[in-house]
Nucleic acid binder design. Structure first.
Lengths: 358, 358
DNA sequence: CCCATGCGATGAATCGATTTACTTGCGATA
DNA sequence: TATCGCAAGTAAATCGATTCATCGCATGGG
């Protein structure tokens, strides 16, 4: 246990005194400047050790315009996706020697704007924003207004000012279409719930475009809703009530995790067997999906890749002085084949797709 | 859109100049000191408005020992429970005018200790620690070592140095015992998975103590495991394989969310009807539990109450100079009756229990 | 022998807000 | 009228680390 006696915190001047050098020299040693005699560096290190000295990141940041802090603003912290995203972001930032300040906009755009302003107060080196809605929301507007360095993630497509990083929703959804059409399904329900964000729309388009291209006669029903839980439950119940059982959709592509849960509950309630009567594939994987019976086939988002790409891209702007045009990153998703998805195609075993950025 | 032109950030001196007063006066106005002429205060506010001035929280904190920052260290950010907890903590801290720095120890004790040290670097006013293990872990040790103001939450019982806040696991579990024994169950499986923390042990004890007290002849099996997912799945499968079907446990009390999921999957796999064949009650509620079929009866933890109590308690120490003995707070849980829990007792309709702290 | 060069080190300025210690002005009191 | 007290305001010190502008000293070329 190094350190030991705790009374008043040691400052850089205490270290300097103990090592018999100036504070400036201590600073140089600590930040690795080469112009220090080896012997002095040695003594500084000993003094640091003995006093248990640690740099005050607040005081250290004061003088420079750039502070070694990154901000992250996400729509919520309670969903596994953003929880995991934040964990990975923090990890990546930490690896680069930055502290990360996380805040949740709680799905509110005004709050998102306020949080961006607060990040600006803290003079963060850069901000990672997962917008409530899209790249044209209030948070992104503020980022532009303050001319902040930032990367937009998840609920975004291209932007002319900021780099973006997102799962390749379009390609992954297209591949789900490949699978379902390949299995022979010609009547498919696409179901989206809770928040019809840009990501959900992209998934819808990716699936529909590919399905139509493979067989223009395919019938697709769309059920999208932004209402509260009970309303949505009623809507899906009404959908199945209305359908002639013989002409019911034989497969469901649910566009979000909430949606998957709702659909699954309704199918169970009707005693429809999955996948024998109805095949179910969901977008966004979750731990519970591998544990339910049947287990759920789902598209897993590359959370870690998104986080690492986001931090790397941001730091490239901040540190490397990358001044080129904004880049759009699409990270490939992975389809996790489980029971609810029915038979896996043999011909094509899709595992990861990447759509090249235009 | 107030503010408008962004070039260089306005400092307090810019505001002072624009208002025709000194920086000291501006500071007084902004922090609400009474000894300022109304007219000057007015002009300061106008200047602030015009320049879009915002206090630099970093510079503002430098001079005082106390910085308006709170630290929060939690075991993970991906579980709904801690996600919600952090959201509420942040909200409460914000309401009191503090910025919250969140970090995840990722279930690692050494990392937890390192994060506490880092919070100390930031000279946070106080720290909220949800320990990986218990109040005697490495993180709490560091808190003691640095003599930091802190509150321990969730996986803790009493401590002689820090205030603690937790769900009343003991009382809530006892009430689950009330319910199950009341329903006539005399053979019950208690299942715990993933991480056998202090909270899980308390739940186990709370249930077992009460069940034994109600009927000393009750048979309770205990299945606890800290292994990986596959191993745990195998264990529960083996448990049901071994049991004589006629003498199987008729009810399961799962001690964590993971556990609930595992048990549910196994029951489904065996085509055991819930609740007709086996009643299932879980500790820790989650959104998916109200959507599955059958829906899951579960104990909901008072996340918001815990968070608010934690922040309030911490600020009482930090600001109010509360120097009394450490207090142990237990927040009452709520049992959410749904389908998997079988018939709800009529005599007693337990909704919330509070165990008085000793 | 003188001066340019450069290494290694340092005192002082700096970042932006807060707070201390003091000044000024004015009315009230003895 | 002289003194005291109080309101209002400000210059300057302060927080802790970084960085700028020097500075001493040794070396080597001219």
């Amino acid at each position: 246990m190094p350190g030991g006696g705790e009374q008043k915190r040691a400052t850089i001047h205490d270290v300097a005194r103990a090592a018999g050098v100036s504070a400036a020299t201590v600073s140089k040693v600590l930040r690795g400047f080469p112009t220090v005699k080896a012997e002095n560096a040695q003594r500084v290190h000993q003094a640091v050790e003995k006093l248990g000295y640690r740099i005050d990141p607040l005081a250290a940041g004061l003088r420079n315009e750039q502070r070694r802090i990154l901000g992250a603003v996400v729509p919520d912290l309670e969903s596994p996706f953003f929880g995991a995203l934040v964990t990975e972001l923090e990890s990546a930032a930490e690896g680069a020697g930055y502290t990360m300040i996380v805040a949740s906009s709680r799905e509110s755009e005004p709050r998102e704007a306020e949080l961006v302003a607060r990040m600006n107060d803290w003079r963060v080196a850069g901000t990672i924003l997962a917008p409530v809605r899209s790249e044209s929301g209030m948070g992104a507007d503020r980022l532009r207004q303050f001319d902040m360095a930032a990367v937009l993630v998840d609920r975004v497509s291209a932007d002319d000012r900021f780099d973006t990083v997102a799962a390749d929703n379009y390609a992954a959804s297209a591949s789900v279409a490949d699978l379902l059409i390949g299995q022979g399904h010609r009547h498919i329900l696409m179901h989206g719930a809770t928040r019809i964000s840009k990501a959900v729309r992209t998934r819808l388009a990716g699936f529909a475009d590919r399905a139509k291209a493979l067989d223009s006669a395919v019938r697709m029903d769309t059920l999208l809703s932004d209402d509260d839980l009970d309303e949505q439950r009623r809507a899906i119940r009404a959908y199945f009530d209305a359908a002639d059982p013989a002409k019911r959709a034989t497969a469901v592509f649910s566009l979000s995790q909430h949606s998957t849960l709702l659909v699954l509950a309704e199918l169970r309630r009707r005693d429809l067997r999955v996948p024998e009567d109805v095949v179910l594939i969901g977008f966004d994987d979750s731990e519970w999906m591998q544990t339910t019976w049947p287990s759920i086939t789902a598209v897993a988002q590359p959370v870690r890749a998104i986080a690492q790409q986001a931090v790397a891209t941001l730091l490239a702007r901040v540190e490397g002085g990358n001044t080129g045009f904004p880049v759009q990153h699409l990270e490939p998703c992975e389809l996790r084949h489980r029971q609810s998805g029915g038979a896996q195609q043999d011909a094509v075993t899709p595992k990861a797709w990447r759509r090249t950025a235009d």
